[in-house]
Computed example of a mutant assay.
Amino acid sequence: MAQVVRGVIARAKGAPVEVVPVVVPDPGPGEAVVRVQACGVCHTDLHYREGGINDEFPFLLGHEAAGVVESVGAGVEDLSPGDFVILNWRAVCGRCRACKRGRPWYCFATHNAQQKMTLEDGTELSPALGIGAFAEKTLVAAGQCTKVDPAASPAAAGLLGCGVMAGLGAAINTGQVGRGDSVAVIGCGGVGNAAVVGSRLAGAGTIIAVDVDDRKLATAQRLGATHTVNSRAVDAVETIRSLTGGNGADVVIEAVGRPETYRQAFYARDLAGTVVLVGVPTPEMKLELPLLDVFGRGGALKSSWYGDCLPERDFPMLVDLYLQGRLDLDAFVSETVPLDGVEEAFARMQRGEVLRSVVVF
């Protein structure tokens, strides 16, 4: 029988979010209902509210979440009520050409629940990234649920569902940072600072954090950056080169998603180095680079989708590192807020006051 829960929706472009009753249907074949315990306030949710993703309003916001499986639909065999899970927005299909080539982290046919959650008047909701977890319960595809050790804090573990995984994966999976490498991270919000942590986990020797906000740079230093650069005060490219023997960094991770910062990343890398774009650009942005420079500098220019993660592989491993005290996910939780605190959390995020606000149920 369908349930009615409280959830946060964006009803129209730019309008303040609202807490409203949301109807959650019973899970159908291949689906699961999850009782959400915690959900991070991610910049992507703000993009949805501002119409920056698409115009399929109203949106049920929230996607960076952990919780407990309440019920499952027909045909679900590897998930049971009571399982503690992190929700992911790239449930791999196992059948597309990427999956068949043994590269499921590139799955081209990721899927979501078939049924829709609705308002009480029957209006269908578009769940953010196919999840919609600013709600007491949510309906997802069973493949979007990744079981992890229930000893983990839901507020910390849920952050692996998006931003922290994107940054960690940009360093470890996409950039393939190795022991002794030099790394520069441009943009030190939640994703960029996660890239700093990922670079440290991978054994990088030099980790240079670049931002225009000294508060974010201080956080990056606490999380493992060996050097910080305020690019308002100095030339970021020249400073990165000076900190790497005049050569540039082996891996440069761009976590802003703007042409200006991408150009910085391109010219701040060593010959044959790697640039990783994990910052999300907007549709109108254009990039212009001399093609001869692209050819002459060699190396690799990569985009990182969700940190090129495979949730069933990466989430349990990272939660284990967290429980061993080797990965400080708690450091990313700046504050916990109630469900009706999302709008104010957006404002604090825009002012750069937090790494992550987390809604705790």
Rank of each mutant, 00 (worst) to 15 (best):
residue 317 M to Q: 14
residue 237 V to S: 03
residue 15 A to M: 05
residue 107 C to T: 08
residue 202 A to G: 08
residue 121 D to F: 08
residue 333 V to I: 03
residue 316 P to V: 02
residue 283 P to Q: 14
residue 271 L to T: 14
residue 174 T to P: 03
residue 304 S to C: 06
residue 86 I to S: 08
residue 282 T to K: 15
residue 257 G to T: 04
residue 33 V to A: 09
residue 7 G to A: 00
residue 257 G to Y: 07
residue 121 D to I: 08
residue 22 V to C: 06
residue 60 L to F: 13
residue 215 R to Q: 11
residue 41 V to D: 02
residue 201 L to E: 14
residue 192 G to C: 15
residue 140 V to I: 01
residue 139 L to D: 03
residue 253 I to A: 10
residue 201 L to A: 14
residue 341 G to R: 07
residue 136 E to K: 03
residue 158 G to R: 04
residue 315 F to G: 03
residue 29 P to V: 11
residue 76 V to M: 05
residue 269 R to D: 09
residue 329 L to N: 00
residue 90 R to W: 11
residue 112 N to K: 12
residue 247 N to Y: 14
residue 88 N to K: 05
residue 347 A to L: 01
residue 272 A to K: 13
residue 172 I to L: 04
residue 209 A to F: 01
residue 11 R to D: 12
residue 138 T to M: 05
residue 25 P to K: 09
residue 220 A to T: 02
residue 113 A to G: 04
residue 21 P to W: 02
residue 254 E to I: 06
residue 243 L to Y: 00
residue 177 V to D: 07
residue 269 R to M: 13
residue 272 A to F: 14
residue 130 G to L: 06
residue 329 L to I: 06
residue 136 E to R: 07
residue 37 Q to F: 09
residue 22 V to I: 15
residue 15 A to D: 10
residue 320 D to T: 14
residue 70 E to C: 07
residue 135 A to N: 00
residue 191 V to Y: 12
residue 78 D to I: 03
residue 185 V to K: 01
residue 328 D to K: 11
residue 74 A to N: 09
residue 173 N to D: 06
residue 312 E to T: 14
residue 166 A to K: 02
residue 86 I to Q: 06
residue 323 L to V: 12
residue 5 V to I: 04
residue 58 P to C: 12
residue 154 P to C: 06
residue 39 C to S: 12
residue 150 P to I: 07
residue 315 F to K: 03
residue 124 E to N: 11
residue 156 A to L: 02
residue 254 E to M: 08
residue 104 P to L: 10
